[in-house]
Design a protein around this nucleic acid. Structure first.
Lengths: 220, 220
DNA sequence: GACTTGATGGTATGTTTGTACCATAAAAAC
DNA sequence: GTTTTTATGGTACAAACATACCATCAAGTC
């Protein structure tokens, strides 16, 4: 087997093993051994490609944030042929709600890293600041565009609405991870909120309040 | 010193030491030794009062959720002489935004526990489900009351708005913990959102959009 | 005053962790 | 065909951890 090997590919395999292990037992319980076992190799190999555990964890979080960015950009790109701001915003924010198993692993480990970064200053303390700020600016511009197109109330404060949107998205995503809500319900609520924000010109799911979903909470 | 000692008080002291340690170095890095040092005693004493580490962590999360409930009820109680639903809702939701150091410790460790509970099923997997469900019901009833009093648009879906409120509150609180936002800014955004939900009858901070705060993001 | 009990400290022990070291087989280079 | 990389496995080791065990000192109990 010892052919020449694509290092980047091996590293990616090991990092993916780490992500699975972290999603399964928690990031805090990830060890060199558990990663090696999950990857189906030896501890020595993990050392060979990442030297130290800290570097492995760092490489993993880098891959994670990079792929998170890709995911969001993919959503924007595939938001339809000539998407209205509402469609773009909806697509982007829905990304924060984990649906399939892969996205669940993704967001779970991402959340674990985010919380870890609060106390472990070594772990790129400002790694989780840039992306949200950028996203906030993006949402503001989309809201402003909708206002100018007459698809949103011009009296709204675009910045504060953007912050609210970001918080709703993150809060709903977290609640799904915590098992407090189904992904379907979270999606429905997010769309409901967007329906209150944008009028007219809205995506495939029309009608604002109408999309109450299966109302899993029952009557009261 | 070996007088007779109030066990509950000693346990509370040790748990508080654990909370401080967890807020400082992260819950994952808390050890019997670090708790003992933070509490100013020996490891043996921590064993004496909690036997095993797992029981210590469990006792801590119990104390945490209990005090969280107290905090929310305190907020409701001191929400003014004859509070309108908006005042009550505002008071309750603002509790999720950490302001002083004590509440920061509180919410940080609570968040760490919540994320930990996703993967550690031993840690009362359903411990973080009851409180939010109860809260959701409470918010729904407050919104319904406001609608009947004419302080909120009767066309709104009270349940979905309640879920949005919960998500906004959690999302804003998390963003403050992550250092993405100041507590003041988070409070202002939350009040802005409430201003959009309730009209008339509202709390001390009047005017909806007007409360833009110091706008730390600058122009665009 | 003798004795038991409650509260505490110190230390030993077995396990797990990250990392360093030794070994080797296959390919590449010459 | 020998020699040098490259990729991999196994193992050894010091540190840290949770926990169990031994010791002690001050109160209460009789």
């Amino acid at each position: 087997m010892p052919k020449l090997v694509d290092h980047e590919e091996r590293r990616a395999q090991i990092i993916d093993a780490l992500l699975r292990a972290a999603a399964d037992t928690g990031l805090h319980a990830v060890t060199m051994r558990s990663v090696a076992i999950e990857a189906g190799t030896s501890v020595r190999l993990v050392q060979y490609y990442f030297d130290t555990k800290e570097q492995l964890l760092l490489a993993a979080v880098n891959r994670l944030t990079a792929r998170m960015g890709e995911r969001v950009r993919d959503r924007v790109r595939t938001a339809g042929s000539s998407p209205a701001p509402r469609d773009i915003v909806e697509a982007v924010l829905l990304e924060a709600v984990p649906t399939d198993e892969e996205s669940r692993i993704f967001h779970l480990v991402h959340t674990e890293y985010a919380v870890l970064s609060i106390t472990d200053r070594a772990l790129g303390g400002q790694r989780f600041l840039a992306a949200p700020k950028e996203m906030e600016g993006f949402l503001i511009s989309q809201l402003a565009a909708a206002q100018q197109a007459g698809d949103a109330d011009p009296h709204l404060d675009a910045r504060q609405e953007a912050v609210v949107l970001l918080a709703v998205s993150a809060g709903l995503g977290l609640s799904v991870l915590l098992g407090q809500r189904t992904a379907d319900d979270a999606n429905a609520v997010l769309r409901y909120h967007l329906g209150r924000l944008f009028h007219g010109g809205g995506g495939s799911d029309e009608g604002g309040k109408a999309s109450a979903g299966r109302n899993p909470a029952g009557g009261k």
